[in-house]
């Protein structure tokens, strides 16, 4: 197994909800609680789960774009979760992010060339004279012709803009990219192009991805390891085979049973397991195991005590009292 690029320990992010004339703290959104996992060098780790389960918050907290409430993010031996913006700056070069909505991630007032060139100049990665060549190479990397450098974002399609966003992230020569639903807003055909592009770039530059998604078919296609989240907590994490073929957590089982199969014979015999009820509010998450309100095998213990996050062997992590 490759060494860990990032080690996340008990990471928490709670958002205060302020209401009233004096901004009293009225409630807390428990967006992310006690997440611990490693991100290995060169891997694609996917985080899946329903909307609002804390996948994106995890990505933002790792990059310190949302300052974590508690916990540690270890990068190169240092806990970057407590770094201020000035200390984060050199590290931001290594850790990049691509967002979901290609229509709003680019500044509408900057040309593509300016957008891609900005991080290069800011981090002083090359001289002014080399810049145009550098921008052209980056655009070529993401499959765009160099003349696009003169264009403005509003002249491009969604897929083209997502390529530009990727080129901009690559401009810093990062080691790690968070793909925060990076393909969810695109057409299916464009999704395939961008996924292939991501895989090509990973191979070419040895990138590590944290791939945040809800499309399980895509996740199965590209991931080395998969983490499953439910209501701000990690339920299960393991290799793609472990999670898809041998899910341990009842939530993962229900989730996996929802994936359609390409093989018609398999699809006919697929047993769907429908969960009852709705996801509880993260403002007031259930006690004990957060899944116990909807879990088909919930026990008395699940109401009172939080299941421990543990390795069941071979790097297959799960948080469930029912798993031996």
């Amino acid at each position: 197994m490759s060494p860990a690029l990032l080690r996340i320990e008990n990471l928490k992010k709670h958002f205060p909800v302020r209401l009233g004339a004096f901004g009293e703290k009225a409630a807390t959104v428990y967006a992310l609680d006690d997440a611990s996992f490693d991100i290995l060098e060169g891997e694609t780790l996917s985080l899946v789960g329903e909307s609002g389960c804390g996948k994106s918050t995890t990505g933002f907290a790792i990059l310190n774009l949302h300052r974590p409430t508690a916990g540690r993010v270890i990068y190169k031996g240092e806990n970057i979760a407590v770094f201020d913006e000035a200390r984060m700056r050199p590290i931001r070069r290594d850790l990049q992010i691509v967002f979901q909505d290609p229509y709003s991630t680019l500044n509408p007032r900057m040309t593509i060339g300016e957008a891609v060139g900005e991080p290069i100049l800011f981090h002083k990665l090359c001289s002014k004279a080399e810049l145009p060549g550098r921008i052209e190479r980056l655009l070529a990397d993401v499959g765009l012709p160099g003349r696009f450098a003169q264009r403005y974002p509003h002249e491009l399609s969604g897929g083209q803009r997502q390529r530009v966003a990727l080129a901009r992230a690559l401009a810093c020569e990062p080691k790690f990219i968070v793909c925060d639903e990076a393909i969810s807003a695109l057409d299916v055909s464009i999704q395939a192009q961008i996924i292939n592009l991501l895989l090509d770039l990973q191979e070419k530059y040895g990138l590590t991805y944290l791939f945040i998604a809800h499309d399980l078919a895509v996740v199965r296609h590209i991931s080395d390891r998969v983490g499953v989240m439910y209501l701000g907590r990690l339920a299960e994490l393991g290799t793609r085979e472990q999670v898809f073929a041998d899910p341990l957590h009842p939530y993962t089982k229900a989730l996996m049973s929802a994936v359609p199969e390409a093989d018609p014979a398999g699809e006919r015999t697929r047993q769907r397991q429908i969960l009852e009820g709705d996801v509880p509010s993260p403002l007031d998450p259930p006690s004990g195991c957060r899944f116990h309100t909807r879990c088909p095998i919930a026990m008395e213990k699940c109401r009172s005590s939080v299941p421990e996050w543990r390795d069941t062997g071979a790097g297959h992590f799960v948080a469930c009292h029912a798993v031996p």
């Binding site: 931001r92 070069r93 909505d101 500044n107 900005e118 991080p119 800011f122």
Partner: peptide, 25 residues
Amino acid sequence: RPYITAARALGLTNRIILTRYVVPN
């Protein structure tokens, strides 16, 4: 807007974000 978060993720300073991102928009 996401492009502000994107600019922060690149490590750009508040001054650059204000002058090149917030003001022109």
